[in-house]
C-alpha cells in the first residue's frame, strides 16, 4: 500500500479516492467511512485494523465492489466500479475479487470440491476444467484429502481453507478477507496466516480486516481505522 502520491512500481489493483460511506440507522446518519484514499498494488498484503465499528468491514466491502460509496471513486484493476451496474459489479467481483468471510458462508449441502467449483461454474468454466482447478486449489490449501467432505464434516479452520480456495477459484489478483480468523482458535489462526503469506508470496494481493493482532502483524502493511478515518 502506498499513498496516492507514491511511486508506481507494480500493477495497481485498487485505488480509492476520498471515499465516503454514510447510511441511516433508525433515523441517525452514520458515517462509516469518512474520506479515505488508499491504493493496493499487486503483491501487497495489507491488514486493516481498528476497534469494532471503526469501518473496517465497510471499507473492505467498498474495496471489493460489494458496496457503493456515498461519494468518492474506487478503481479496481483500472475500472471505475462505482460506475458499473449491479450485475456488472457482480461479474467484476466474480472475475477479479476473491472474498473470504468470518462465517465462511459455504453451502452446507455441497462438498468442499463443489463449493470451490461454484464460482467457476458461474463464470462458465467447463466441468472437467473447474473440477481439476478446484482439486488443485484444495490441495494448495492443504485439503487434498477432504475434497468430498461437506462443510459440516470438517473443522472450522478447514472450512475457512475451503472458503479461501473458493475465493481463489477464478484466479483473482485481489483477495479480501473480513475477520477470517474470527471463528478460529489461535493455532488455526496461525495456520491461516501462513496460508495467506504463502498465497501472497505467490503474487496474490491480500487485504484483511481483522481484530487479530497476530494476523495483522504477519501482513506486510497495516492500516489503522478509527471512526471511519485512517489514523496516521
Amino acid at each position: 500500500m502506498r499513498s496516492p502520491q507514491g511511486a508506481e512500481r507494480r500493477r495497481r489493483l485498487v485505488e480509492a479516492r476520498d471515499v465516503r460511506r454514510e447510511y441511516r440507522l433508525k433515523g441517525d446518519l452514520i458515517e462509516a467511512v469518512r474520506g479515505i484514499s488508499l491504493e493496493v498494488d499487486a503483491g501487497d498484503f495489507l491488514a486493516i485494523v481498528g476497534p469494532s465499528g471503526s469501518g473496517k468491514s465497510t471499507l473492505l466491502h467498498l474495496l471489493g465492489a460489494v458496496d457503493s460509496p456515498t461519494s468518492g471513486a474506487i478503481y479496481l484493476d483500472g475500472s471505475d466500479v462505482t460506475a458499473l451496474s449491479d450485475s456488472e459489479r457482480a461479474r467484476f467481483r466474480l472475475e477479479h475479487v476473491g472474498l473470504v468471510f468470518q462465517r465462511f458462508h459455504l453451502l452446507p449441502m455441497l462438498t468442499a470440491l463443489e463449493n470451490v467449483e461454484l464460482p467457476m461454474a458461474e463464470a462458465g468454466l467447463a466441468r472437467k476444467e473447474r473440477e481439476q482447478r478446484a482439486k488443485e486449489l484444495l490441495t494448495r490449501v492443504g485439503l487434498g484429502e477432504r475434497m468430498r467432505h461437506r462443510p459440516g464434516e470438517i473443522s472450522g479452520g478447514q472450512r475457512q481453507r475451503v472458503a479461501v480456495a473458493r475465493a481463489l477459484a477464478n484466479r483473482p489478483a485481489l483477495l479480501l478477507a473480513d475477520e477470517p480468523t474470527g471463528e478460529l482458535d489461535q493455532s488455526t489462526s496461525a495456520e491461516m496466516l501462513e496460508l495467506f503469506q504463502s498465497l501472497n508470496e505467490d503474487g496474490t494481493a491480500i487485504v484483511v480486516a481483522t481484530h487479530d493482532l497476530q494476523l495483522a502483524a504477519g501482513a506486510r502493511q497495516q492500516l489503522t481505522l478509527v471512526d471511519g478515518k485512517i489514523r496516521e
Binding site: 472474498l99 468471510f101 461454484l118 477464478n170
Partner: peptide, 9 residues
Amino acid sequence: ALRAIGISK
C-alpha cells in the same frame, strides 16, 4: 455472501 462472491441474481 453468494452475491458478494459474484454469483448472479
